[in-house]
Design a protein around this nucleic acid. Structure first.
Lengths: 258, 258
DNA sequence: GTGTTTTGTTCCATTTAACGGAATGCTATT
DNA sequence: AATAGCATTCCGTTAAATGGAACAAAACAC
């Protein structure tokens, strides 16, 4: 599944190599990577050596394989601290977490994936967990759906055509028609809701955040265990989420119509 | 200052480009990068476009420039969760923070720079702050000095010859002879101490962590405001730091001599 | 310990993919 | 409308990356 569409092949290859590493597969050796990407061993070896020299990768202590390097840690840190959206959002998340008592999440769309940009965890012992930086699929979960429900129709159709609707949990929407209708409902309602679309025993509510140009650029929401959050409670808590999103939008310079 | 020594030029260039971005200079445009690296604009443009396509970089909302992309956030996250040293160290840091009441830091050496790998912040209102992933210079601060004080002599001399001893704070050691002597003192004492070498009004204590092969691979230490930590208190608190380092080493499979 | 397989590393002739100078296009700014 | 400061595209050239194959080093089996 090597990626295409890029002006410099080497960049794609590097990206492909880095994407071989996941939390579940943190340690890979030359042969594995070479096979996965259908890259000749010598080519792969040369790239890996170069990546290691620059700190993209590091050899495991025992020398048994490669892992992601500390340089990525550093760049990730710089990326994080320089995202002004994130900085602006932290107070809103904090407030949202306090008023609802649940984990508050800021998500953004990057192409056809969502990313958790920031998070404030509920202090309750039973709580939903997320990791900053984690990629999420656009079709499942309130924080994901809200990221594209408010885009212009053509863009929505474009994304809908491109993404894969793999089932994640019992209620994941896997039908394109259904999903399109759901996005419509989200627009009407002004916020997205999900029950067990991504995690068993979990639900979520999320509302869109707009930038100064009026473009939907992020989603702010909460995730809670079902046990504490029956469907009836959604309409009670949703306003808090919508308000938080609106407040953040305002802080980013968005002008609300009406 | 483009880096050399790597098998694939493109990898170096990518690394150089990414390193143009810092917390202080998060937003850069084509011309700036092109000038900084002495790279022809067209070449630079092609690379930037490719990097953007793969998520290494992202265009600023207003389209005025490039910033580090979310993909780096993701890779950074994966790197962080897969570093077993970090996972092993967190309990030690937590304990150290509790017994001393100060911010506890785990640092490692990556070539000629140190990196803050993990941190547990003191709950005191006046406290030292660090950021995970931040790069630190090897010659200033206890957590830095301890990273190479216990290396074999030739390696120490090698590093000493390569690094630049720029003054950071009032007490930063900027003389190579002095620094060599200081490293000797650290070896004798078994831990490193610093007073205002990196931050005004701050001090630090750090001890070496050894891996299963007996190699010094990390440093564990505390950083505190001077107001709370006069020189007399060092000898009282140092054992706690040394113990934490020793405990972590043991957990990593290091066998202590004696 | 010896043979065998697997994995990692180096070599080098070939060719393609990256290169970069120059021309063009696009926005702001005055 | 003119200018300046950028960003983008073009295309002939060439060096830089390529990858098959040979070699080396572990890891494994017996």
């Amino acid at each position: 599944m090597p990626s295409e569409t890029s002006a410099v092949r080497t960049v794609n290859r590097i990206s492909d190599i880095l994407n071989c590493f996941t939390s579940k597969q943190p340690l890979l050796n030359l042969t594995t990577i070479s096979n996965t990407l259908n890259l000749p061993k010598s080519t792969c070896h040369r790239l890996l050596t170069a990546l290691e020299a620059q700190g993209f990768l590091a050899r495991d202590t025992a020398g048994r394989g490669y892992r992601l390097g500390y340089q990525l840690l550093y760049w990730g840190m710089v990326a994080q601290t320089t995202l002004d959206l994130r900085n602006e959002a932290l107070p809103s998340l904090q407030a949202l977490c306090e008023t609802t008592g649940e984990t508050a999440i800021l998500s953004i769309r990057d192409g056809n994936v969502g990313i958790c940009l920031a998070m404030v965890e509920s202090s309750q012992s039973v709580r939903l967990t997320m990791q900053v930086g984690r990629r999420i699929m656009l079709h499942a979960g309130a924080s994901s759906k809200v990221l594209w429900a408010f885009l212009p129709e053509p863009e929505i159709r474009q994304i809908l055509a491109e993404i894969e609707l793999s089932p994640v949990q019992v209620n994941t929407i896997t039908d394109r028609e259904q999903l399109l209708l759901e996005l419509g409902r989200i627009r009407e309602r002004g916020y997205a809701v999900s029950f067990e679309e991504t995690d068993a025993g979990a639900m979520g509510i999320a509302a869109p955040v707009y930038d100064h140009a009026g473009q939907p650029i992020a989603g702010i929401g909460i995730a809670a265990p079902l046990s504490r959050f029956p469907a009836e409670r959604v309409s009670v808590m949703a306003p808090a989420v919508v308000d938080a999103a609106r407040a953040l939008s305002a802080r980013l310079g968005a002008r609300m119509n009406g």
